[in-house]
């Protein structure tokens, strides 16, 4: 801070003082509302989730199967070729255990999130999702095998959260 700033009169306002009636403040809530077009890829992906299936798109040139599906291959820059169902089982690529919710409130039960490479998709391609909250975070590990736990059909709305979470795949 410059010498000059030290001479500025007054004190820093505390939160309570900012909210006090005699403080001059302005409030503005942006009116920013969107309804994005699903388009071809999003729409089919979400419709298939509602059906209890995970679908991707295959690129014949590089041979990759992209999940979530895209109508174009970013590697080859060409239109992808066909729809391919992948399995709802996979392997943890990476994971984290969050002790904050979306509004940065500290939470007692941590949220387990993982990127799961799906069986049938190409290596390093899969889904970002929750891991069963009953799993002890200490038991999580990269390479862990998981399987989707779907919400009951009537509760599915065409959303990534139509899968409730992924749970450890029981051996055998």
């Amino acid at each position: 801070m410059s010498e000059k700033m030290k001479e500025v009169p007054g004190i820093y306002l505390r939160d309570a003082e900012l909210k006090a009636e005699d403080a001059i403040t302005f409030k503005w809530r942006p009116n920013a509302k969107y309804a994005w077009s699903g388009g071809i890829a999003y729409s089919r992906y979400l419709a298939e989730l509602k059906n209890g299936r995970i679908i991707g798109r295959a690129c014949r040139e590089c041979g990759r199967i992209l999940v979530p599906p895209r109508m174009f291959c970013d590697t080859c820059f060409r239109a992808t070729d066909e729809w391919v169902y992948v399995k709802d089982t996979g392997t943890i690529n990476t994971y984290s255990v969050s002790y904050l919710d979306a509004d940065a409130n500290r939470i007692k039960e941590p949220i387990l999130v993982a990127v799961i490479d799906l069986d049938g998709a190409s290596e390093g391609i899969g889904i970002l999702h929750y891991v069963d909250p009953k799993v002890d975070p200490k038991d999580l590990h990269i390479g862990m095998k998981l399987k989707a736990v779907w919400k009951p059909e009537k509760e599915r709305i065409g959303s990534v959260t139509d899968i409730a979470y992924f749970e450890p795949l029981k051996e055998g």
Partner: peptide, 19 residues
């Protein structure tokens, strides 16, 4: 209005044609 395609799919169409 373009309910049938996402902005990404529109960009891809324009880009593919330009290239």
């Amino acid at each position: 209005t373009t309910p049938d395609v996402s902005f990404k799919e529109q960009m891809f169409e324009a880009a593919a044609k330009a290239y």
